[in-house]
Computed example of a mutant assay.
Amino acid sequence: MARSNALRQPSAAPQDVSNPLGARLAIREGSHTGPTAGMAPGCVQGNLVILPKYDAADFLRFAVANPKPCPIIAVSEPGDPHLAAIGSDLDIRTDVPRYVVWKDGRKTEEPADITPHWRDDLVTFVIGCSYSFEQALIEDGIEIRHITEGCAVPMYRTSIPTTPAGPFHGPLVVSMRPMTPANAIRAVQITGRLPGVHGAPVHLGRPDLIGIADLAKPDYGDAVSIRDDEIPVFWACGVTPQSVIATSRPRFCITHYPGSMIVTDLSNARLSVS
């Protein structure tokens, strides 16, 4: 599997990554190449699934049937990489730090630019991301460990099945954040008001009950420290489509690399329900 950053040329002047356009330009120009957690605080970040038109209707049905891991933020017209409704000067081909190209359910490349792979029949799905609800947790004084430790959130495949649609099926993926029990209760209350970015946790405590053998060995992202007074708190994760792609094996697909999202102009506050 190849990984290439050849099309990225770092900019001489650093961009202001505290705003969404600056974050996208920093990514496009190659001055930011890592996880997007903490970029453009207050703005929605999205997971990506890009499929040929012949698979798009089935995937949309899959997302509707599985709203916790796959809350749809935007869907493009076939062949349109710009999605102006979610970001000015947004180009889905260049504005994610790292992508994954899939063929027949296998990862073949992890490029920093998918322009060479772009086709007129490709449909982009932008799916809500837990980075959005993390801002609400931080504002309430709850520590987000992977941000503190400067790494990607740990993510795990579980034994929980998704609801199949057409050819798409596979296990739920969850993201994990360690918290004290008191903070976990508060996190349930806060994230429950944000169904557009995964909503409330799907599980607390005992990882073995959902098929996770070892928290120190995430399937995606990085392991984080867990203190003696903390429990793991698990949310449905937008990386779920990647486990589904590996299981369902569509002929062609492009996703984001876990932890590397598209930063949109949308406000997290717009996704909150009272």
Rank of each mutant, 00 (worst) to 15 (best):
W118S: 07
R119W: 09
R119C: 04
D120K: 15
D121Q: 08
T124F: 05
I127H: 04
S130T: 14
Y131T: 15
S132H: 02
S132N: 04
F133W: 15
E134Q: 09
E134V: 01
A136Y: 12
I138W: 00
D140G: 05
R145I: 04
R145G: 03
R145A: 12
R145V: 09
C151S: 04
A152Y: 09
P154C: 02
M155L: 11
I160D: 08
P161E: 11
T162C: 12
P167Y: 09
P167F: 05
F168D: 05
F168E: 08
H169C: 07
G170W: 13
V173C: 13
V174E: 00
R177F: 00
P178R: 08
M179H: 11
A182K: 12
N183D: 14
R186Q: 10
Q189V: 06
T191M: 07
T191V: 06
T191C: 13
R193L: 13
L194H: 15
G196H: 14
G196K: 15
G196A: 15
V197E: 12
V197N: 14
A200D: 03
P201L: 09
H203V: 10
H203T: 10
R206T: 13
G211S: 06
L215I: 05
K217L: 05
D219F: 02
D219T: 02
Y220I: 01
D222W: 06
S225N: 11
R227T: 10
E230K: 05
E230P: 02
F234A: 01
A236E: 09
